[in-house]
């Protein structure tokens, strides 16, 4: 009788451990997923804010003018990238009629948020893509 009880105890303990481990695993996975979604959402928001602020400050107009006049764009791109908070990294792509014209900056992480802004010019459509990641 004593032997049977101790075996049952062992079985129960094992089952509880499995259940507990599974529950913890499921819970941990969800948290990571949630955190990733929140992080990407935050990074996307920052990327959007960078594009909006640069448009409001006239940097986008300046960039369009430089592109139309075929002048150097780096100075304007530096001004846009400088709007990025110091704890984040920012990369910009400028596409003109769907062709990559120039890019600037670099990301420090594979997880990033992205925002796009379009501008019509006399020659077609210019697209600015802003990507933001953690440093």
């Amino acid at each position: 009788m004593n032997g049977i009880l101790s075996m049952t105890d062992a079985m129960t303990a094992l089952c509880f451990s499995v259940v507990l481990i599974l529950a913890v695993c499921v819970h941990t996975y969800s948290d990571n997923d949630h955190l990733l979604a929140v992080q990407i959402s935050y990074l996307q928001k920052v990327a959007q804010q960078i594009l909006l602020v640069s448009a409001m400050k006239g940097y986008v107009t300046e960039l369009i003018t430089k592109v139309e006049l075929r002048q150097e764009t780096t100075y304007v791109l530096v001004k846009i990238v400088n709007l990025c908070p110091s704890e984040l990294a920012c990369r910009l792509y400028v596409l003109y009629n769907a062709k990559l014209l120039t890019s600037f900056g670099r990301l420090a992480d594979s997880v990033f948020g992205e925002a796009k802004y379009f501008a019509t010019t006399s020659q077609g459509v210019m697209e600015i893509i802003c990507q933001v990641s953690a440093k």
């Binding site: 979604a37 929140v38 959402s41 996307q44 928001k45 594009l51 909006l52 802004y117």
Partner: peptide, 12 residues
């Protein structure tokens, strides 16, 4: 999160 991101994207 996806809805919020979509709403932010639409706002932009």
């Amino acid at each position: 999160a996806a809805n919020r991101m979509a709403a932010d994207r639409l706002e932009l």
